[in-house]
Structure formats: structure tokens, C-alpha cells
Simulated assay, not measured.
Amino acid sequence: MQEEQDLQSEAPSGAWQLRWVELGVALFLLIVAGLVIKDSLRLGIGWADDGPRSGYFPFRIGLALAGCSAWLLIQQLLRWPRLRSRVFAERGQLRDVAAVLLPTAVFVAAIPWLGMYLSASLLIAWFMWRNGGYRWPWLVGLPVAVSVSLFLLFERAFTQPLPKGPIEHWLGF
């Protein structure tokens, strides 16, 4: 009975159907597996005098990923008609994901120019303002305190430098 309802109903307008998302992920992973296998073959997948060559383990991981991806692809194609009305995400849910994904992508893209600490401060301030409704004293104070704490932790305690931007260079770090 549930299958009959699934076959008769369609996904709401603006929603991403589960079958397309799962098919896309399976195809994407199959492409990634192909790239891993191809590069592993370039590096060599056998044994050398001193042990396995550079592509030995990645080749096997690529084969496993290709097998899993092919299995997912076959499953999706076999269940294709039954998944017509199943919804992966609706427009509002995708908007919520984009509200986190896009600022995070900007953060990652800004790191080479602004450095890790300033980029992190801006990202924290953005989320505090956009999602938390915080006012200016908090929007400046807390992100700066977090970035200074991260600087002390990574640069001083762990002695692991992170990408620096113009502010750190101006301060002599």
C-alpha cells in the first residue's frame, strides 16, 4: 500500500528528490574512485625492494570505493520507481544548509589573504550576528578573544604555525 502511494504522489515543488541525490552521490564517488585508481597506477601499485610502492594502498582504497559506489548506483537504479516521492530536502532546509555552507566557503577562501585568525574572527562574528542576534560589544570581543586563544594555543603552546594575514604580519608574527 505504501509503495502504491509512493508511486502515485510526487515530491513537492522545489524539493530535491532522494533518488537524484543518491544517484548523484554514487556517481560522484565513482568518479573520485576512478581518479584515485588512475593516480595510483601512475605511482605504482606493486612492491619495490623496500616495500609497497606509493600507489599500493590508495589503489586498494580506490577499488573498495569504486565497488561501494557501483553497489549504491545499482541499488538506486533498481529502486528508482519507488523513490519518486521520497524527499531528500525541501527548499527551506536547503536554505538553512546554504546559510552555513556559503559563509564557511567564504571563510576558507579568505584564509590565504586574511590569515586563519582574522578569517575565524569574521566567521564567528558573522554567525553571532546573523544567527544569534548579538550586539556590537559581543561581536567584536568574543571573536577576538577566540582568535587570540587559538593563536596562543597553536603558535605558542603547540608551536604549529597557522596561515597568517596582514594583521599578524603588522604585529610582527
Rank of each mutant, 00 (worst) to 15 (best):
G92C: 10
L27P: 02
V108M: 08
V108N: 05
P137K: 08
E3P: 07
A157N: 10
L18V: 12
Q2I: 13
P137F: 07
R42F: 07
I167C: 06
L123I: 10
D49C: 12
L171A: 11
Q160T: 15
V106N: 08
L102G: 06
R60E: 00
V21W: 03
L152G: 13
R130E: 12
K38H: 13
V108L: 13
G55M: 02
V144R: 03
W20C: 10
I124M: 13
Y56N: 01
A109C: 04
A145W: 08
W170C: 07
V32I: 15
W80S: 07
Q93A: 15
V87A: 05
Y117Q: 01
L72N: 08
V21Q: 08
G55S: 06
V140G: 07
R156G: 06
R156K: 14
P103N: 06
R53K: 15
V87I: 14
A120V: 09
F57Q: 04
A11W: 00
W113M: 13
L150I: 10
L122S: 02
A64F: 03
E10C: 09
R135P: 08
Y134Q: 14
A157F: 14
I37H: 01
L139F: 06
G62M: 01
Q160W: 15
W80Y: 13
I45H: 00
I31G: 05
P137M: 06
A11M: 05
L73M: 14
L7V: 11
G24N: 10
E3L: 15
R53P: 00
D6R: 15
L65Y: 01
H169W: 11
L77N: 09
A48E: 09
V97T: 07
A105I: 12
R42S: 10
F107K: 03
Q2R: 14
V144T: 13
D39F: 11
V36W: 01
S40C: 08
F59N: 01
L72F: 14
R91Y: 11
S119G: 10
P12S: 08
R42D: 11
V25P: 02
A64R: 01
V144N: 05
P143Q: 04
F107E: 04
G55W: 00
L102S: 08
A157G: 06
W71C: 12
Q75G: 10
F28G: 12
S119Q: 03
A145M: 10
L35I: 15
S85A: 15
A120P: 04
H169Q: 14
I31K: 04
Q17S: 10
I111K: 02
V146H: 04
I37Y: 00
P12V: 08
F88K: 00
P163D: 08
V87L: 07
R53C: 05
P163N: 06
P137A: 12
R130D: 11
P81W: 09
L94F: 03
S119C: 06
V108I: 14
V25K: 02
Q5W: 12
Q2S: 14
